[in-house]
């Protein structure tokens, strides 16, 4: 097996890969920016909304979680213009799909975090006269979010990897560019190794950063006894 590696021809197009990475980060970043707050609202509606809100929100979350992301992506890209007459470009379709898709997962992370907080915390907040909003904002969420950090990171990494699907609607992300270069240079092995390495560097750096953040948060007191 005397394969001769040759990165030279691939590195000539490295700037294309970098632009692809920037696009990947754009879709991932914006989807997080919209998906996390939307996830919080979905979680709160599912937990505390009246029946008329709780049930449809639950259905929406389950639907987004159980259908393949690629089907959602196609749906928004092709169905929006047909059904609603709204033209959207691949970038918009990607951000829309992954914001919604990840919000469903973040909703479940938020919900898990919120219900994991001891009921005594709600009671203590209530007893000093806080209403539910104040209790959530000041007492429950700060503790829940701290516990949710690892699950958040997990979801964010998952999201970044899932965004590789955007190439299927011709959005030029890192994998899409890699594919193009592979086809023009016939150096698939080199170019995909390089692309994988770039995903690794970004994701690994993020996960190290989050781990440090976690250690920092962990230094403030965790639970009361009893």
């Amino acid at each position: 097996m005397g394969y001769e590696w040759d990165f030279g021809v691939v590195l000539r197009d490295f700037d294309l890969l970098l632009w692809g990475l920037v696009n990947t980060l754009k879709v991932t970043g914006l989807s997080l920016l919209f998906g996390v707050p939307l996830g919080l609202f979905l979680a709160l509606w599912r937990l505390y909304g009246g029946r008329l809100i709780r049930v449809p929100v639950g259905v929406l979350i389950e639907f987004l979680r159980t259908t393949p992301p690629i089907a959602q992506l196609f749906w928004f890209f092709f169905a929006m213009p047909i059904l609603l007459g709204i033209e959207i470009d691949p970038f918009q379709a990607s951000v829309l799909t992954f914001s919604l898709q990840s919000s469903a997962f973040f909703a479940e992370v938020f919900r898990g975090g919120i219900v994991s907080i001891d009921n005594g915390q709600w009671e203590a907040a209530k007893a000093i006269g806080m209403d539910r909003n104040a209790s959530l904002r000041r007492i429950i969420l700060p503790q829940a979010v701290k516990r949710m950090v690892p699950a958040f990171l997990e979801r964010a990494i998952e999201l970044m990897k899932t965004t590789t699907l955007v190439g299927t609607i011709s959005y030029a992300d890192l994998l899409y560019e890699a594919n193009n270069i592979a086809q023009s240079t016939y150096r698939s092995l080199e170019v995909f190794s390089l692309a994988a390495g770039m995903y690794f560097v970004v994701i690994f750096a993020c996960s190290m950063g989050v781990r440090r953040l976690e250690r920092h948060l962990g230094r403030t007191g965790e639970t009361t006894t009893g």
Partner: peptide
């Protein structure tokens, strides 16, 4: 005042 104190740990 509660049996289990319920101080805010954060």
């Amino acid at each position: 005042v509660f049996q289990h104190f319920n101080l805010f740990p954060h």
